[in-house]
Amino acid sequence: MSEVPVWVAVVVGALSVLGGLFTFLGCLGMARFNSFYARVHAPTLGTSMGCITISLASAIYFTVSGQRPAVHEVLILMFVSVTTPVTLMLLARAALYRDRSEHNGDVPNEVGQDVVVQPAPEQALGRSAS
């Protein structure tokens, strides 16, 4: 670490602590939620706000200490914010496919197949009696 002005140190430190806090809360939520579909949204706290704050801290620090604009952290930020929705969407679709094909849990049916034909009450009674 090189000597930087105090306000830069305060800003960079606050941003890095905040980013760490966001990432930790996201992963804690992923560890503690009950079902997969509740769990799948928790780590995005780390990938959105954690990435924004920590990349901003790194960009500010290297810009001030290197005396030139260092904005290549924007690359990480763009890449992560583009790829995270794609991966989580694929993962959620794969999980939904597995749950549907195994008929477990209360996952919704496919589009167009959500009208469930109920048997008539007397037929149901007769079937249960026999």
């Binding site: 000597e3 105090v6 140190a9 430190g13 602590v17 760490g20 806090l21 990432t23």
Partner: peptide, 17 residues
């Protein structure tokens, strides 16, 4: 001063991640 601030804040960030 600024090195001390950065040191402790980065340490906390490391612990949280």
């Amino acid at each position: 001063m600024s090195i001390a601030i950065l040191h402790w804040c980065l340490l906390v960030g490391h612990l949280l991640t």
